[in-house]
């Protein structure tokens, strides 16, 4: 079965991103397909490669990146939500005159249409938030 995942909260403050990760991993391990993981609201903060959690804690951002690499996951960060919160890739940095980028590997920035498309193409859509 094809799943779409929506993550609406950032890492660490809420458990949402952890739950979404565990769900996504379990679905993949069961042989399901993840059409897309879409990050919206503060969920876009899961995509900054500048996080440095203590060594004995999980690295939520790296964990998503690794899962994306392992399963060729499509992880999309909403552009409008990202702009509000300072999540930047090279294209966005050029467009908005920013002097740095912070998008972690495996993530890409795109429009909200990607969320709707995930809803259309997936058999099930699951939301993780606060």
């Amino acid at each position: 079965m094809k799943f779409g995942i929506l993550v609406s909260e950032g890492p660490y403050t809420h458990q949402a991103s952890d739950s979404a990760y565990q769900f996504t991993k379990a679905a993949l391990e069961k042989g399901h397909e993840i059409f897309r993981v879409f990050f919206y609201h503060d969920g876009v903060n899961n995509a900054t490669r500048l996080t440095t959690p203590p060594q004995d804690d999980r690295n939520i951002v790296n964990r998503w990146s690794k899962l994306a690499e392992q399963y060729n996951l499509d992880m999309v960060v909403c552009v409008a939500a990202a702009q509000r919160r300072g999540i930047v890739d090279e294209g966005e940095a050029k467009r908005n005159g920013k002097d740095a980028t912070n998008l972690a590997p495996g993530f890409r920035i795109s429009g909200l249409g990607q969320l709707i498309e995930a809803g259309i193409q997936s058999d099930r859509m699951v939301t993780f938030g606060d």
Binding site: S8, V126, G129
Partner: peptide
Amino acid sequence: VDYAGFVDLVADNKTNQSWL
């Protein structure tokens, strides 16, 4: 249920709603 059971519940129900 574990996370695999969570996945099964989502698959087995036509719709789901997260009551945020």
